[in-house]
Simulated scan of single mutants.
Amino acid sequence: MNSENNLGKKEGDSGFAPAASPTAATTIITHDDAILGGETTINTQGENMPAWFARPKEAKGALPVVLVVQEIFGVHEHIRDICRRLAAEGYLAVAPELYFRQGDPSEYSDIKQLLDNVVSKVPDAQVLADLDHVANWAAKHGGDMRNMAITGFCWGGRIVWLYAAHNPQLKAGVAWYGRLVGEKSMKQPKHPIDIAVDLNAPVLGLYGAKDEGIPLESVDSMRQALHAANATAEIIVYPEAGHAFNADYRPSYHAESAKDGWQRMLAWFHQYGVKPTSK
Rank of each mutant, 00 (worst) to 15 (best):
D220F: 00
S218C: 00
L216G: 09
I195N: 13
M186F: 02
G213N: 07
K190M: 11
P192L: 04
V203I: 15
A209P: 03
D220I: 02
I214F: 02
V203D: 13
H191C: 05
K190W: 11
P215A: 00
P192A: 09
I214V: 10
I214N: 09
M222W: 00
A228D: 11
A231N: 07
R223Q: 10
M222S: 07
D198C: 07
Q224P: 06
L199W: 15
V197K: 15
D194T: 09
M186C: 03
N230Q: 11
D220N: 04
A229I: 04
A201V: 11
E217N: 09
H191N: 09
D198I: 08
A225L: 02
T232F: 04
D211T: 08
A225I: 02
S218D: 10
S221C: 01
K210G: 14
L226N: 00
L206E: 13
S221N: 03
Y207C: 01
K210M: 12
V197H: 15
H227M: 06
P202L: 10
E217S: 14
D220L: 01
A231I: 11
V203T: 11
A196G: 12
P215F: 01
E212V: 13
I193W: 06
L204P: 08
Y207E: 03
A225D: 06
M186D: 05
S218G: 03
A229K: 04
Y207A: 04
S218L: 02
D198E: 15
L226Q: 00
A225Y: 04
L226C: 00
Q224K: 12
K190Q: 15
D194S: 12
M186H: 08
L204T: 13
A225S: 10
L199D: 12
S218P: 00
N200V: 10
A196M: 13
A225R: 03
A209T: 03
A229Y: 02
H227C: 01
K210W: 08
P189S: 14
L204R: 11
N230I: 02
S218E: 06
P215T: 00
P215W: 00
A201L: 14
A201K: 14
H191P: 05
H191L: 14
D211H: 11
M186I: 06
P215E: 01
L206W: 05
A225K: 04
Y207P: 04
R223P: 04
I214L: 09
Q224I: 02
N230D: 14
M222K: 01
I195L: 14
V219F: 00
V219K: 03
A209L: 07
D198G: 06
G205H: 08
D194N: 14
H227D: 08
A228K: 05
G213Q: 06
I193F: 07
P192R: 06
I193R: 09
L199K: 15
D220M: 03
H227K: 07
S221Y: 00
N230V: 13
M186E: 10
V219S: 03
S185T: 14
L199C: 13
L226M: 00
P215C: 02
E212M: 04
K187L: 15
D220V: 01
P189Q: 15
A229T: 01
L216C: 08
P192Q: 06
L199P: 11
A228N: 05
A229L: 00
L206H: 01
A231Y: 04
V219H: 02
K187F: 14
D211S: 11
V197P: 10
R223M: 08
A225M: 03
